[in-house]
Amino acid sequence: MKRSYIRKILDAIDKDTISFAGGLPNEDLFPLKQISKASKKVLKDRSSLQYSKSQGIDSLREKIANFYTRVYNLETTKDEILITTGSQQAFDIILKSLNANNLIVESPSYIGALSSFRILKKDIKEFKTFEQLNNILKKDEILYCISDYQNPSTYTYTKKQREKVANILKEKDAYLIEDAAYSLLNFKGKIKKPICSFYKDKSYHLGTFSKIVAPGLRVGWIRANKELIEKILVVKESLDLHTSTFNQMLIDSYLDDNDLFKHIKKNAKNYKKRMNYMAECMEKYLPNFEFERPKGGMFIYGKFNNIKDSMQLATKALEKKVAFVPAQVFYFDEQISNEARFNFTNCNFKQTKEGIKILAKLTK
């Protein structure tokens, strides 16, 4: 087993490094005043420091369920929500509750998911087209996918593609893990119906407050039918008993007193500006980097037409105090690639321009 490349990079980064590597939300947008107010309110209640339900506190699960019903138009009750310690924990919980050994993933795919699958010794197969998916997916196997602003590729499924995936899952009688970490970060505020709304019986929909409120709180959730929730609840109890009571109550109190979607809209507006500025810098200084501007999320993804191995470039760039993620780590077989992922949410305009210009010199 190896550590996550991105986590190792984050450990190596110091205050002088220009980092396009991690999926870090912009700290300037954290609702500090509102969170501070919520924390004072929560700490007046001694139960905030006590053990709590393994499935999560009722009021927070109720809010998340209402969100699914109202925004996704997917009728949901609090009994169909389980709170997790970050969305990352959901992979471990779900996989330990199922007997399936085979996992089908998009190529490329999220490095954190691949790490979870590997450490549990699952057999991983990849697909690039829905025809390939249809050919390799078997009964009771697991499909893992990101339907909105995929990490790393930034691709988003159309409604037709979502329905097609759902039909394949129904035909094969397989499981779905749908990762929705970025689904609310559309630059125009448009939210698409998830795949699980077309295929509910054997699906898990993963959400998180990490990208929309604050990642340090480590509060995420799984949405699934009651039968599946009961199975994963047993696993959750064995891992950490429950997610931090205080952090759950903090988020719950924040949601009571603030408009979450107003905050998300503010973030998305800021991120669109940052994305466009990075794209303009790339087009000016890195003309050999080919990419499409994303419509949401936190990354720009593309390929270098003048180099073969972006891992070598990433190593040299880190020596010059610039970090980005080479695509090799997003392929389960770690194939050499000229592709790369850049985070645009964390750096200011000055750092972005400087970092891209340093990369331009290295690629020459």
Score class of each variant (00 low, 15 high):
112 G>S: 11
204 Y>R: 01
141 E>T: 09
267 N>S: 11
37 K>T: 13
20 F>V: 02
91 F>I: 14
180 A>H: 06
107 S>W: 02
95 L>Y: 05
276 N>I: 05
135 N>C: 06
324 F>N: 07
91 F>Y: 12
352 T>S: 03
344 F>Y: 14
72 Y>V: 04
273 K>N: 13
166 A>V: 00
118 R>P: 00
356 I>H: 07
204 Y>A: 07
318 L>I: 08
172 K>L: 01
100 A>E: 11
197 S>H: 04
186 N>I: 10
139 K>M: 06
280 E>Y: 02
352 T>H: 05
123 D>S: 05
348 N>H: 11
287 P>T: 03
311 M>T: 07
91 F>K: 13
83 I>Q: 08
211 K>R: 02
14 D>H: 05
99 N>T: 11
40 K>R: 12
261 F>I: 03
234 V>H: 09
147 S>A: 14
218 R>P: 00
200 K>V: 09
101 N>R: 11
185 L>E: 12
328 Q>E: 14
226 K>D: 06
9 I>R: 12
141 E>I: 05
43 L>F: 10
354 E>A: 08
356 I>E: 08
65 A>H: 01
298 M>I: 15
292 E>F: 09
74 L>H: 11
57 I>Q: 15
176 L>G: 14
129 T>I: 02
214 A>T: 10
75 E>Q: 12
144 Y>D: 05
328 Q>C: 03
72 Y>E: 11
60 L>F: 08
168 I>C: 04
349 F>R: 14
274 R>G: 07
152 P>I: 02
340 A>D: 05
67 F>I: 12
119 I>V: 07
169 L>P: 08
153 S>M: 05
238 S>T: 07
233 L>T: 13
177 I>P: 07
232 I>M: 09
53 K>H: 03
107 S>D: 13
220 G>R: 10
239 L>G: 04
221 W>K: 00
82 L>H: 04
235 V>G: 01
215 P>H: 07
12 A>K: 06
221 W>P: 00
155 Y>W: 04
121 K>P: 00
230 E>A: 14
225 N>A: 10
142 I>K: 08
68 Y>G: 05
341 R>M: 15
143 L>G: 03
345 T>W: 03
163 E>W: 00
287 P>A: 03
272 K>L: 10
79 D>C: 00
134 N>P: 00
172 K>V: 02
160 K>R: 04
89 Q>V: 00
224 A>N: 09
178 E>I: 04
352 T>V: 13
321 K>W: 06
82 L>I: 14
146 I>M: 11
244 S>C: 15
194 P>L: 01
119 I>D: 08
18 I>F: 02
34 Q>R: 04
62 E>G: 00
167 N>E: 15
351 Q>R: 09
58 D>K: 09
160 K>C: 00
160 K>S: 14
186 N>R: 06
232 I>C: 15
209 F>W: 12
192 K>M: 10
220 G>S: 13
193 K>M: 10
128 K>N: 14
